[in-house]
């Protein structure tokens, strides 16, 4: 399965404070471990939301707002895409990550939808089943 591992923002990351050299070094080593384990697919750090835009949707209306955005702890400061066997494996790897921030911080792990998740919706069998159910329900 694939997961997106999201490093959540803090006041420091939103202020654009660069981490110290030791942390960058530890992070580099961690990334090397991920590559050697064959689980790293992609990863990047994100600039603070002071450089971001937000597009709000409401029906056909689109409203664009400039950053920075207020809800700091809900924002994402960086991400990886990993290929892992299951969520437990992703959790163990995240535990090995050096604390990416100066103070307390959070990392969220979110599974990606995969081909199989959509296969369920599109097989002819389920489509036929759905048609039959609709008919039985008089729809």
């Amino acid at each position: 399965m694939r997961v997106m591992v999201m490093v959540k923002a803090t006041e420091d990351s939103e202020a654009g404070r660069m981490p110290p050299a030791e942390l960058l070094d530890a992070m580099m080593k961690f990334n090397e471990e991920l590559v050697k384990a064959g689980i790293m697919l992609a990863g990047d750090g994100l600039k603070p939301t002071s450089e971001a835009k937000r597009v709000h949707f409401d029906g056909t209306k689109r409203t664009v707002t400039d950053g920075p955005f207020a809800e700091t702890r809900e924002l994402v400061a960086g991400y990886w895409i990993w290929q892992v066997k299951d969520m437990a494996e992703a959790v163990e790897w995240v535990k090995r990550c050096p604390n990416p921030m100066f103070g307390p911080s959070d990392i969220d792990i979110r599974p990606l939808y995969e081909m199989e998740d959509f296969a369920e919706i599109t097989t002819p069998e389920t489509a036929a089943l759905e048609r039959r159910l609709r008919k039985e329900m008089g729809g």
Partner: peptide
């Protein structure tokens, strides 16, 4: 059989890392 292909890809990635 995607699981087998995925395992081979993982092996390839490990090898590339090493």
């Amino acid at each position: 059989r995607p699981a087998l292909a995925a395992e081979a890809q993982r092996l390839g990635r490990i090898l590339a890392g090493l």
